[in-house]
Design a protein around this nucleic acid. Structure first.
Lengths: 333, 333
DNA sequence: TTGTAAGCGTTATCAT
DNA sequence: ATGATAACGCTTACAA
């Protein structure tokens, strides 16, 4: 592998000059520049990224921590992040935090040790205090899907409360009054936000929130299954259920079918996230679109701006979920 | 940030000795070792990964190229790979190849420039020749979901042909004779393999393969939609359709419902991959399980063995898909 | 067992 | 505009 030294010899210039043409940060006469470029081409020279990092103290890599690699949601998020960063010549180092505190901290330290220039974190278990503390450290980071007041400038998040509100409001507008709720894990802030929106919609329309029509799930199908079973067994009547996400809805729908509860005639269902499969469930799921790919792009842009002096980027911190109407909600009188 | 030098001063030993205790590769007296460890602890020393790489010519990073980051399948794959590698202290640099040749080559070069010690490639567009050529280069790699004779030792793949065979055989055993096929893109080797298995099963039972009951899809829901519409419009009768993957099946099922074709009474359907949603479609999809997480682990193990002298690892190159019987296939007489 | 010192391939600060 | 040269933080012969 040719080094910068080989290039300098062949071009008949100094190391420094070669470095200059690579980095285009200082004036080099057109002639010299061409000589260098030719030499590079002839040798098939490729800069050694590691040596560059050591000397410049920048690695051009950004570390990404997500809860899980599997699942539609995280894939979409990574997709947005990677596309944006790759285009800027940065690369992403990805690791998983498994939504528990020890692993998340572990992952963050792992990435920092890997000398990432910046981090994009999708963390759920770690406390706000920890993050505020972390922000005083040397490695800047952006938070995705989380909003902490003190770090607001570095957050990209969804208005979960509004989403929860819209989901329930949609049902109310269709005449529903007995509305059940299958939540996500109550220690996750987005799950809390969605539930809060649900409660606000209820309150605004003078409907009571009933503990019996509430179930804490896990954001997965199994939670929807357990939740719907619980609701049916409770004996309390309900005409609709809002599910904290689409996977939960999918599980709930399966149980409805097994119990011959017709959707949407007997039970209306609203999901959240609008994952690809939402449109292929039966019936097609009415849900709230979570623009996660776009948000991944935005987190990456924010990173580019904060850590790589990109500018003229339009930054947006808070995104709105959008109602996608399909077939799982019916009107009642 | 403390450096190895600071540690050596505080511990009262040389740089080399500190390096030795870090790498545990040479004898250091217990006493000295303790002194060094204490000094490290006191300073909160963290080795600089970049400097280590430059000096040792190993980066402890492995580059992963996948077609897409979004979608269940790739997420599951990455999950297996990352878990295995992370446990070994390696980190993964991930990039996407978008299933087209230019981007795949681009991605590979990007990763090589990033001085990865090894690569794990999920490539579809690049030719066998290119890969054979690449294997002569300096950076070793493992191929996942692809099997090239010359590189067999570095491949981890699924027996797609067998899977296609089993899918169709299952239908034949249930009495089906008019079996349609909605394929994946015919330039993908796994799509070809699955189709080949389908044809073999047909031939073994003296059933003809009919061009009219064949449709080339795209491995996505839209392909299943288009395929099933095509089959219905063709007017040819069929009692079953095997779909090249679950997403295709999902799209096809949606069309069946819209046309009041009852599954499985009027049309039986078999999928492939067993993605999470397969069990939550309506009806629950009979499909072939693709053990992709396990295969991700295996690709990582192979990498650990080839590039990081791990040993005692049980390596398996070819995996078998396994039939998962659910509700989308019926018996006919 | 431990220390000395020469790299690893760049960048960046001085001079010139 | 260009060239020397000292870092960057670590590994690894080679000596002792």
């Amino acid at each position: 592998m040719a080094t910068i030294y080989d290039v300098s010899v062949l071009a008949g210039v100094s190391l420094a000059t070669v470095s200059r043409v690579m980095n285009k940060n200082a004036k080099v006469s057109e002639k010299t520049c061409k000589k260098v470029l030719d030499a590079m081409a002839e040798l098939g020279y490729r800069p050694n990224a590691v040596a560059q990092s050591l000397a410049s103290n920048r690695s051009n890599s950004v570390g990404i921590l997500v809860s899980e690699l599997k699942g539609q949601f995280y894939g979409a998020m990574l997709s947005g992040i990677e596309a944006e960063l790759r285009e800027a010549g940065k690369h992403v180092i990805i690791t998983a935090g498994h939504a528990n505190e020890a692993d998340e901290i572990d992952g963050i330290e792992f990435l920092i040790d890997r000398s990432c220039d910046a981090l994009i974190l999708h963390v759920e278990a770690v406390s706000d205090e920890y993050l505020v503390e972390l922000s005083k450290g040397a490695v800047p980071f952006v938070l995705i899907n989380r909003n902490i007041k003190e770090l607001a400038d570095n957050c990209v998040s969804l208005d979960n409360e509004k989403g929860g509100y819209v989901a329930t409001k949609t049902l109310i507008d269709k005449g529903h009054k007995d509305i059940a709720y299958i939540a996500g894990p109550m220690w996750k802030s987005d799950a809390l936000g969605r539930l809060a929106g649900h409660k606000r919609a209820l309150a605004e329309h003078n409907l009571n929130f009933s503990d019996e029509l509430f179930f804490e799930g896990n954001y997965r199908q199994s939670g929807g299954v357990a939740g719907m079973n619980h609701l049916i067994e409770s004996g309390k009547s309900f005409s609709a259920v809002v599910c904290a996400n689409d996977e939960t809805a999918s599980g709930a729908m399966t149980v409805c079918r097994e119990n011959n509860l017709k959707i949407p005639e007997e039970v209306s269902i609203v999901g959240f996230d609008n994952i690809i499969f939402a449109g292929h469930l039966y019936p097609k799921l009415t849900t709230l679109d979570y623009p996660i790919i776009e948000m991944g792009h935005m987190a990456a842009k924010l990173t580019l701006q904060n850590s790589y002096q990109a500018n003229n980027l339009k930054i947006k911190h808070l995104f709105d979920p959008e109602l996608i109407v399909r077939d799982s909600v019916s009107k009642i009188n």
